[in-house]
Simulated scan of single mutants.
Amino acid sequence: MPIDPTEPYDSDNIFARILRGEIPNETVYEDDRVLAFKDINPQASNHILVIPKGEYVSWDDFTKTASDQEIAHFIRTIGKIAREHGFVEPGYRLLANIGRHGGQEVPHLHVHIFAGEPLGPMIARG
């Protein structure tokens, strides 16, 4: 169920539990501020989730309250992960869902990296 990005951070969400080591994951990158791991229900040949280790509900919350250094590090890390996994050529997609209309389901900021196949249009046109 999509969430409201204005709600307070829920420290029992699945990504918070992964960060605490309560739920296993297949880590592809980790440093003191960022964790990236394979999605357990991949929507493309390669599907990586990248999350900050701080308690941020959404992209809006993150860009409003995180430090400039934390924001820059997060964005640069996403690019680093894409380069290290060979996604730059032939291409990849980044996606961050925000709020109910954006389809956000976990109340912890996360960016999806999709790669490894042609991904088609972002929104299907009828």
Rank of each mutant, 00 (worst) to 15 (best):
G103H: 08
R93S: 08
V88D: 13
G79Q: 14
E105P: 00
A115R: 14
R125I: 08
D61P: 12
E89L: 08
P2E: 14
G86T: 12
L35C: 00
I75C: 12
Y9F: 15
G102A: 04
A66N: 08
I3L: 05
T6V: 10
L35G: 00
D32I: 05
M1P: 05
G21T: 09
R100F: 11
K53V: 08
G116C: 01
G102D: 05
D31G: 08
H47P: 08
P42I: 06
F62K: 04
I48G: 02
G116S: 02
I123R: 15
E22L: 09
W59R: 10
Q104S: 07
E30Q: 12
I40A: 11
E89W: 01
P8I: 11
A82D: 02
F37R: 01
A72N: 13
N13S: 07
P107C: 07
Q43D: 05
G126S: 12
R100T: 15
M122G: 09
K53R: 07
Q43V: 06
H47L: 06
N25T: 10
P121H: 15
Q69H: 14
Y92K: 13
I123Q: 13
H101I: 11
R83A: 11
G103L: 12
I51S: 07
I18D: 05
V50F: 03
F114W: 09
Q43P: 01
P52W: 01
R76P: 02
H112K: 04
L94R: 14
F37C: 07
I14F: 10
L49C: 06
P118E: 05
Y56I: 06
E26Y: 03
P8M: 10
F74E: 04
N46D: 14
